[in-house]
Amino acid sequence: MRSTPFWALSEAMLRGFLRDRASVFFAIIFPLMFLVLFGGILGSQDQPKVDLIKVGSVPLVDELPEEARAAFDEAFEVSEEDDLDAALTEVRKGDADVAIEQRGDELVAHYTQTDQVKAAVTQGTLRAFVDGANVAATGNPPAYSFSAERVEDESLSVIQYVTPGLLGWAIAMSAAFGAAATLQGWRQSKLLRRLQLAPVSTGTIVTARVAVTLAISMVQLAVFLGLGAAAFDLQLTGSWWMSIPIVVVGTLCFMAVGLLAGALAKTTEGAVNLANFLVLPMAFLSGSFFPLDGTPTWLQRLSDLMPLKHFNTGMLDVMVRGEGPAAAAVPLLILAGFAVVVGLLAARLFRWDSA
């Protein structure tokens, strides 16, 4: 079987990849460095407390029942200040999140709006303590009770959310750069012309290149999940095995992006730079490095046009959010659509020679 043109080409391409230390580094080692960095920094990170300055005497806080005061201290990192202006200056500078004072029966919170999410959490938490104090003052028990439960599995940690995005970026970078550099390198070295004259069909050449790229992507998937599980207690949930078809179709999509870059550029350096120009902004705008929930609406809509956003969403759904196989259907269709459209465009612009 190895004597067939497909296996001979596949083995040659794989050997070429393994011999190119830069390719191995940027395909596997470099992305893993980010996984280790994010995992080490964020892996055991807890929800930070709100930095609160208590200005003067605040009876509502000082006279909280023991259980309520314990909850208050768990939610807030409390410091005290007698000067209101000094406390407000600290809040404006970002050294504190909120300063509270009591004016008669009114609790006044002075907060910063620079972090709108934390500002909303701070106001809601303080309002809950005020409501609790009102109930305690009237002596009437509340008619309703409240409890909060997370919708995800209790075992989830930050590393669960970091891994799919970084894996998506690694696969996009490897597939796009590999396709761009290979196409332009073969063109400049006249290898494409020699292959055209050899008794090997174009379909065999393309199939061998695709097979090698998919094999590299599967190795990336296995290494990422293996390191995440071994070093950072990564636990897969839901239909995590659906990540395999997502990786396969996603690889084809980003390989098409690389082929387009290789078809447009005149040199190997130009092809790699163009692929980088396409992939790197996509990584930042698709949630690979940070979530997009707090970004402007127009930026979220722009990210919907990028295939890496749908790759990351599909991976999160099946690996983290506990969704079933059906959750991967839409991302797979979108990625496949991108692969077909961009692949056809690359084929249209393809030239056997650099000139």
Rank of each mutant, 00 (worst) to 15 (best):
S57D: 12
C253K: 01
A211P: 06
G250Q: 05
D82M: 08
A261F: 01
V223M: 08
E77T: 05
G250N: 05
A263G: 05
A329C: 10
T138H: 05
P142Q: 04
P65S: 14
A175C: 09
R209F: 04
R15I: 11
L280W: 09
P59W: 11
A283E: 08
A128T: 13
V55Y: 01
V206F: 11
A180F: 04
S239L: 08
M306W: 06
F311R: 01
R351W: 00
T114H: 12
D97W: 01
Q220F: 00
L333S: 11
L259R: 00
D131V: 15
F6N: 09
P331N: 13
E106C: 03
G168H: 01
K266M: 05
P296S: 08
F6S: 10
A347M: 11
G168R: 03
D293K: 10
Q123T: 10
L252W: 06
V158S: 13
F350K: 04
L332Y: 07
Y161D: 07
L259Q: 00
A137Y: 00
A12H: 08
L252D: 02
A230I: 09
N276L: 13
E66G: 10
R103Y: 02
G94M: 02
E77I: 00
L305I: 13
F17K: 09
P307G: 13
R127A: 13
A68Y: 08
G324E: 11
V50K: 04
F38L: 11
A211F: 12
S147H: 12
Y161T: 12
I100H: 02
Q47H: 09
A263S: 14
A329T: 15
F30Q: 06
F224E: 08
T213A: 14
E90P: 00
L195Y: 07
V341S: 02
A87S: 03
